[in-house]
Design a protein around this nucleic acid. Structure first.
Lengths: 280, 280
DNA sequence: AACTGCTATAGTTTTAATCTATATCAAATA
DNA sequence: TATTTGATATAGATTAAAACTATAGCAGTT
């Protein structure tokens, strides 16, 4: 298993086709065929079901994809570590909780790379800022905004949880379930209200502030959690996300600003780009 | 850049010798020489200074080592993902905050893999448990323990912070420094006491519960933090850890238990093994 | 000074990746 | 229904890369 064959795997996965992947990777189709077959042999799993027209990933293929993506991303990051370094200049960005460190890092990395003279400082979102990334609920009257990310709240389950076999979960099935409570969180309050009406109670095993840690504990088997299902936690193959029937909660994340400077316009552009990328 | 050449790099780095690495990797020395030269050309950096007898890593080589190690570790983990799966059976493990999700995951993965009939549940450390992993300070009278991890509290700095150029930081240099406060944390209280005596005050920019998030914000440039410097955060190349002169604080993490069952003995063995590994 | 131990270079051999050609199969189209 | 199209798999050839053996060159040790 090497980076190149994983790159071919990712390409096949995304394009659902050996020949398309071969084109994308500028090699011949039989090379892709052989590389995937070799990878399957090395990992002792079947990664794709071959059809007359294209391929579909197996469960194992689905599991490998985010892992391969991450590994290649990290390899790319290693290469980046050794390139040039820019100078800096203050830009205060307010951030609210639970935005997702990884996607924020990608955005902020782009922002600071695109303008080498910008020195970013992250501050709590209720301080004096140049711009801020917050929940739409948190917008103030003097602020304009652009939409960034929108996420449904879903039930996070360990991948081997019995309920993970269902496409969705009904309220009654939550009764007595070990649960990780995220607090403070409006959605949690909504969930509690809905459960109370239905006469359902949860077995709260931990109270956690950060989404990342909540996901980590779901994975470790501590219980389930009700979380905004954004891309970087959905991509985890070890945690499954399922909608709760009759409970539809969404949060919207926006870039808020009061005046448009050059740096803010640049950030707006990047925010749109990153919002678009993550919705694909 | 591929996994194989990074593996050779790691071997050279650890053995400080091309020929020793060649032996360890079961290839000829000139192949190692060529592979490292190729890697240096690809990354456009010099990784090792060649001596008549052996090599020493450059600053860039030092920087690449943890990154390469992590990448290879992750690649190995991908391979592990596709091996067999065991059945389960309850074992309640209490865990205190700030243990480090990654190293805990490795320990717990080993634990659950070694005994396929054990179903691990993580619970807060003050509940009824089979065993718990806690700070030594948190030990109770009826508990025995084995030592696991010991960590000095160090100042975490963004890698490009001016203070990062020093080997250690004196108290006066902390005055007015943007800071991420970790709370609740005994070491923070000690730090505050020491600073108060010295007439030094910090510019606290955020209050964070989790160590991981604190490190994330240090990296993002929000400020510095005073954190236990355990392996997985030390390995980050984007955050530098420095001792504070005249301030020596250490925390000890232990595996605590009241009775010895088979599963606990197995966990004890693994805890020792993991403690040993992380001290190398 | 001679010996030892190391890295680098040169040229050769081996291995792996990739190529072209084409068989086979299923889906789409006329 | 027959034909065409588009896809993956297999076979054999070609190319590129990895690794080899041999040895030069240099510094350190005895």
């Amino acid at each position: 298993m090497d980076l190149k064959s994983l790159n071919y795997f990712i390409s096949v996965y995304e394009l659902k086709s050996f020949s398309a992947a071969a084109k994308a990777c500028f090699i011949a189709q039989p090379s892709v065929s052989a590389a995937i077959a070799q990878l399957e042999q090395q990992l002792k799993v079947t990664l794709f079901i071959r059809h007359a027209r294209g391929v579909t990933p197996t469960e194992q293929g689905e599991k490998l994809f985010p892992l391969a993506k991450q590994l290649l991303g990290q390899a790319g990051a290693i290469k980046n570590v050794f390139s040039e370094k820019p100078l800096k200049k203050p830009f205060n960005l307010g951030v609210t909780r639970g935005l997702g460190v990884a996607r924020m890092s990608l955005l902020l990395k782009d922002f600071t790379s695109a303008k080498p003279n910008v020195e970013l400082t992250l501050v709590p979102h209720n301080e004096n800022v140049d711009a801020r990334i917050i929940l739409k609920d948190e917008l103030q009257e003097n602020e304009q905004y652009i939409a960034m990310w929108q996420e449904d709240y879903l039930l996070a389950l360990p991948y081997d949880h019995i309920l993970a076999l269902q496409d969705s979960i009904n309220i009654a099935q939550l009764d007595g379930l070990p649960f990780i409570q995220r607090t403070p969180c409006n959605a949690w309050n909504h969930l509690q209200d809905t459960l109370a009406v239905a006469g359902v109670s949860l077995d709260v095993r931990a109270k956690i502030t950060t989404i990342d840690y909540a996901v980590g504990l779901v994975h470790a088997g501590l219980g389930c959690a009700f979380l905004p299902a954004y891309s970087e936690i959905i991509q985890r193959s070890d945690v499954v996300f399922r909608p709760i029937t009759g409970l539809q909660l969404t949060r919207e994340i926006v870039l808020a600003y009061t005046t448009s400077t050059k740096a803010i316009n640049n950030l707006k552009r990047l925010a749109r780009k990153h919002a678009q990328q993550l919705s694909e």
